[in-house]
């Protein structure tokens, strides 16, 4: 049975308020039957250096990605992973992580590819939990392996591939959530992340630039719905009833934006192009726009 939603009034204006929990809610519900807390970070050791009591770690590099093909694990791999974390198909999962929940949102998005129904984010992530002086422990979480069914991944609804993106330039709005310097082409990578660069800089023609961090308030929690609507609908011109494709560098920051558009603003159809700039900026003969203007095909 799913765990009750966080009744926090701060979330009530969002399209799907049940997709968020507050730090206070999580602190009260730790240890509840049917709840598993997952930490997902950029740093592979951060969980081990201290985590929310009773939580388990899911690492994007070593656990969510296939070890050979550039793809996610398959249905059997996902079932084995979930089972090893003590997660059942009807478990309520709360994900939190570092870097304003980038990797947490990414994990949530991957769990959604497998149709796991009840998966929520901790608003503000690890930083908020820590800033409030809440407990972190190095105690090893005992896990009883669960029985998770093999469910094949369904990429059709929320994942875009390069060919689809190329076909739909000019027909479907694209949103580029990287930093402004990556968008213009001045940089091929984020500051401090040169190892994941690409051969070409710039953006996919027609893509609007809305850096992911604009969705976050100063404390790392999500901004209110009105503020978010002013950014994504007002400035970027997105329409909740229409399709939209988001991308970044490897799909992690755009998972964050995917969460905002889908669950906070209630967009009907949002896809994350996880190949993102590391694929597009290295692909042969795809169109690229440089500079601050979205550009045309």
């Amino acid at each position: 049975m799913p765990v009750d939603a966080d009744p926090n009034q701060d979330f009530s204006a969002y399209a799907h308020p049940d997709r968020l929990v507050s730090t206070a809610w999580l602190a009260e519900h730790l240890g509840d039957d049917g709840l598993v807390v997952v930490e997902s970070d950029e740093d592979v050791l951060l969980y081990d250096s201290g985590h929310v009591p009773g939580s388990v770690k899911v690492d994007w590099h070593t656990e969510l990605n296939d070890a050979v093909t550039r793809d996610y694990v398959d249905g059997a791999g996902f079932a084995a992973l979930m089972s090893s974390k003590g997660i059942s198909r009807d478990t309520t999962i709360v994900v939190y992580g570092d870097k304003s929940n980038w990797w947490a949102a990414y994990a949530l998005w991957v769990f959604t590819l497998f149709g796991h129904e009840d998966v929520r984010l901790l608003d503000g992530g690890r930083t908020a939990w820590q800033a409030e002086g809440r407990e972190l422990t190095r105690d090893v979480t005992p896990v009883t392996p669960s029985d998770y069914p093999v469910v094949e991944r369904d990429d059709s609804a929320i994942r875009a591939y390069k060919d689809e993106v190329q076909d739909r330039i000019g027909k479907v709005p694209l949103i580029d959530v990287r930093s402004p310097a990556e968008y213009t082409g001045e940089r091929t990578h984020m500051p401090d992340y040169p190892e994941e660069g690409a051969l070409r800089g710039g953006h996919i023609p027609t893509a609007a630039s809305v850096p992911w961090a604009r969705a976050a308030a100063e404390d790392g929690r999500f901004k209110g719905r009105d503020e978010l609507a002013a950014i994504y609908h007002g400035e970027a011109g997105l329409v909740p009833e229409e399709d939209v494709i988001a991308y970044c560098r490897i799909g992690e920051r755009s998972s964050h934006t995917w969460f905002v558009l889908t669950h906070l603003l209630g967009h009907r159809s949002v896809k994350n192009y996880d190949g993102s700039w590391t694929e597009w900026g290295n692909a042969v003969r795809v169109p690229i726009a440089t500079g601050t203007e979205p550009g045309t095909l």
Binding site: D43, V44, L46, S49, D98
Partner: peptide, 9 residues
């Protein structure tokens, strides 16, 4: 920083 234990390692 402590929030970068892999880098520290």
């Amino acid at each position: 920083p402590p929030e970068a234990p892999t880098t520290r390692g």
